[in-house]
């Protein structure tokens, strides 16, 4: 094991400090739920649902922020987290108590909220993956400002694959389609803007603080990439740790929540959080060339192609 393998423990021992969190940066439908679920099951990590904490400076701003997003399903992750951590269970009562807890602390800065979660969890690396962090530059800037020492994993997925997944989700969930089927949320545009933002703001970080990884490569070769992620984070990469990561379904957040907070993660993941190695091994990267199914007669914008090639797609 590398010298860094005990980084998490060492940090925890140092004056009561905790290890730095890991934030997964990606737009919606980029394998973030399954990846967060996998990493979060490492014995030295704790996977969180989508907290959307970077939408505001305080818990109150987050709670009421970003138009209908938080009110529709953006709050579920926070509610489920506090229900689980405060009461050890997620049901309608504990969710209701979590809501009261949140409302009565609306002036808490988000760092304080996060620190509170960390204290509840203990000396484990918190793994968080809210796609909303890339909704606006100010959200990612807030993340980088609030957690200047955190690790950032920029998770990418081919723009055609991402778009197909977005469209499929919208087709299956009317309430999502109602909000999302607008030109501004064209899947190609969201992909490009989100990844441009992530590349631009994480590129200047010190060597190794931000890492980039293709979701397709990771999921189709978990045996190759999971040990590398462990090595990067300075946590165990032994067989026991890797085996634990192969079971994201063991997370308390890897299922549908109670009726008053059912989501907090991708609906498909909540429905079926178990890894199917054979299915994952079949993941292939589509092509940048060719007509877009959702905009007949059109191809990818040259800016999208340029960025996708930079990220390793062809």
């Amino acid at each position: 094991m590398l010298e860094t393998a005990t980084m998490a423990e060492t940090a925890a021992e140092r004056g009561g400090g905790y290890p730095e969190p890991l934030f997964i940066l990606a737009p919606p439908r980029s394998f973030t739920s399954i990846v967060c679920g996998i990493l979060g099951q490492h014995p030295q990590c704790y996977g969180l649902p989508e907290l959307n904490l970077f939408l505001g400076d305080t818990l109150g701003e987050v709670w009421g922020g970003f138009a209908g997003f938080m009110k529709s399903f953006g709050r579920d992750g926070l509610l489920r987290t506090f229900a689980q951590l405060h009461d050890g269970a997620q049901n309608e009562d504990t969710i209701a108590r979590a809501q009261q807890w949140i409302i009565s602390r609306s002036d808490w800065p988000i760092r304080k909220v996060f620190d509170h979660i960390q204290e509840q969890v203990g000396p484990k690396i918190l793994v968080e993956k809210s796609p909303s962090t890339l909704f606006r530059a100010e959200f990612l800037e807030r993340a980088l400002r609030t957690f200047p020492e955190a690790n950032y994993l920029h998770l990418i997925r081919h723009p055609r694959g991402t778009a197909a997944s977005v469209l499929s989700l919208r087709a299956a969930h009317e309430e999502i389609a109602r909000v999302a089927n607008v030109p501004m949320l064209d899947p190609e545009r969201v992909w490009r803007i989100s990844h441009e933002l992530s590349v631009t703001l994480t590129e200047p970080l010190p060597v190794g603080q931000s890492m980039r990884l293709k979701g397709e490569a990771l999921l189709s070769h978990l045996d190759v990439y999971l040990p590398q992620i462990c090595e990067w984070l300075g946590i165990r990469s032994d067989a026991e740790a890797i085996e634990a990561m192969m079971h994201p379904e063991n997370s308390p957040y890897a299922c549908e929540g109670p009726p008053n907070a059912p989501r907090g993660n991708d609906p498909n993941f909540l429905e079926n959080p178990t890894i199917d190695p054979e299915r994952l091994a079949r993941i292939k990267e589509p092509s940048l060339v060719g007509e877009l199914s959702w905009r007949p007669g059109e191809n990818f914008d040259p800016r999208t192609v340029k960025l996708a090639r930079q990220l390793g797609y062809s």
Partner: peptide, 18 residues
């Protein structure tokens, strides 16, 4: 160069230069 994950393992710039 930029530290990265690769099919050949984690690549850390040995010079510590980006």
């Amino acid at each position: 160069g930029r530290m990265r994950f690769t099919p050949d393992g984690l690549k850390v710039p040995l010079s510590l230069l980006g």
